[in-house]
Simulated scan of single mutants.
Amino acid sequence: MLGVGAPHFREVDTWDSHYHVQHLALPSGSSYDDLLRLVADLHEPMLDRHRPLFRCWVIDGVPGNRFAIYTKTHHSIIDGVSGLKKLYEGLSTSTERTIPTPAFALPTPEPPPAPPHPGLHRLLDTIHSAVVQVGTVNQISLSAARKAVSAALGSHVEGSLPFVAPHAPTNAPAQQARGFATLSVPLAEMHRIARQHHATLNDVAAAIIDHGLHAYLRQAGQAYAHELVAMCPVSLRDDSDSAVGTRVSALFVRLGRPEATMTDRLREVVHSVASAKDELGAMSTNAAMTFAVALVALAGAGASTHLDRVGHPACNLVISNIPGNTEPHYLNGAPLIGIFPVSALAASIGLNVTLSSYCDTMNFGFVTNTAAISDVQALAEFTGKAYAELTAESARA
């Protein structure tokens, strides 16, 4: 549990299964859009900090004789990579009618054995961690300040670019209401386009989201005349790391020019991502984690004090890719049709697009602050059109 005041965890002896795992049913004749609206409504309220920080809903009545499972877990408990891994572990790769242990009940890894002198080691580790973090925060602050000043003077700065982006419509003050939409594109075709342009799947995703967002803003009469800056979380876990907690850093990537073609936009994104990766790659793992924590804390402080309304926001949107799974999964014989991330919004960053592959598709989940993006379904459709445009341009190349 996350206590009030200074955050800390507490173990609990019991938990209320009726509160944490619930059953809902859509009315007869409901559509897929009705499911998305229900998920958006469930996503709005904060988790109760005095209870274990997760909730799960099984939702019946989804069109096509299907059902959905929506799970909400606090980011301090687990990050997206390890969270999705747990979700897959709570499913089966067999069509047999079996119900595996659900993700929220799976055991956590055993902690490493205590060192011979735990008190001394803890003290030395604390001192070392404090020295590293202070040095890293100073380095981050100086670097961010230099970039912010350079950007204000009109220079074209490179690398990871927190607090450099001008305000965009996506940075409207946060409200409680949420919007949610989905998009799926063929994974094999996405791979082909990425190889053709010497890009990654993340680059392709960022480019089409960027293109779709600019098109949406123009259609809504809110055209944005600058290059958007996206925060792109980066997992610091290896394949064997499933420890509780969050182990991520972040890139702050300049996206394409507002008027760029899809192909040119992808080329610009590839260049920006490579520059930001070089900068992050020069940091140690601890420094990279401190970098992300410090920037998120600064963004949160700016939002809570409203300083972000007069200064630059941390970024304009968040784009995240959580590695998925190519093997079909089942729950008590029912096949998993798709898995769509429903991510959190923070500070005054009113758009989070998280994607994850499953079998032969790449699935996008768009989460919005409705004060910033009022029609999230239209944004998803513009992103789909951007993908079709990139596919057509790539075929002609």
Rank of each mutant, 00 (worst) to 15 (best):
I339E: 00
Q377N: 02
A223F: 05
L24N: 12
M262I: 13
D79Q: 10
N332Y: 06
L266P: 01
E96G: 13
F104V: 08
G80C: 03
T326D: 13
S235N: 06
P45K: 15
D79Y: 06
G119K: 10
L236N: 04
V131Q: 00
S249W: 04
M1I: 14
I140N: 02
G212F: 04
P118D: 01
N363K: 05
L236I: 02
Y387D: 13
G179M: 09
L217T: 08
V204Q: 07
L317E: 06
V376L: 04
W15M: 04
S394P: 09
L255D: 02
T263D: 02
G256L: 05
A152R: 14
F163C: 03
A144N: 09
M362G: 00
R10W: 13
R37Y: 14
L36E: 08
G333I: 09
M262Q: 12
S356G: 13
L280K: 00
V310S: 05
H20E: 05
P118I: 02
V131R: 02
L153S: 11
A25Y: 04
R218V: 13
A220D: 08
L36R: 03
R146C: 11
I339V: 12
D125G: 11
D264P: 00
R10K: 15
R237I: 01
L24Q: 12
S235D: 00
Q175L: 06
L379I: 04
L217P: 01
V132K: 12
V342G: 09
A395R: 03
D360C: 10
A250D: 01
A168L: 11
P27C: 15
G83L: 13
E44M: 10
T263Q: 04
D48S: 03
A165V: 08
L345S: 08
D33C: 11
A276P: 09
A299G: 13
P116W: 00
S31Y: 08
P335M: 11
W57N: 11
